[in-house]
Write a protein that binds this DNA or RNA. Sequence first.
DNA 1: GTTATGACTTCAC
DNA 2: CGTGAAGCCATAA
Length: 117
Amino acid sequence: MPPKRTLHRTTPSPGNEAAAAICAVVRRIPRGWVATYGQVAAMAGLPRRARLVGYVLQHLDTTTDIPWHRVVNAKGEVSYTLSRHGSDAFQQRLLQEEGVEFDDRNRFDLERFRWPE
DNA sequence: GTTATGACTTCAC
DNA sequence: CGTGAAGCCATAA
């Protein structure tokens, strides 16, 4: 019998397949490209669980090497929220440094920068 | 146990 | 194009 474990935690850890699968996908997003939360979820084998992707990224350690900033929403923009305390603006800056061009309303061409695959 | 909240998405209008 | 509702589901209270 395999040990019973909770697979509900969003913090990456051995025994958390969902978070591990999500992180594995995010790691593969190339520099200068982006993927949506829903896209990452689907590629991780977790269709319709876009929100889970957001939770996992939120709990990542600040020293992580995972390119969390390349995950964006389906509207073609960085998800701005008060609870992010500035990590949202930081995310946009990182993307701009990688060549993602934002317009005057903080949006970019999703068709152009979306990671195909 | 319940309710509320949210780094989300899709569809109807 | 924008808005709102419904669906989503882990977490916190």
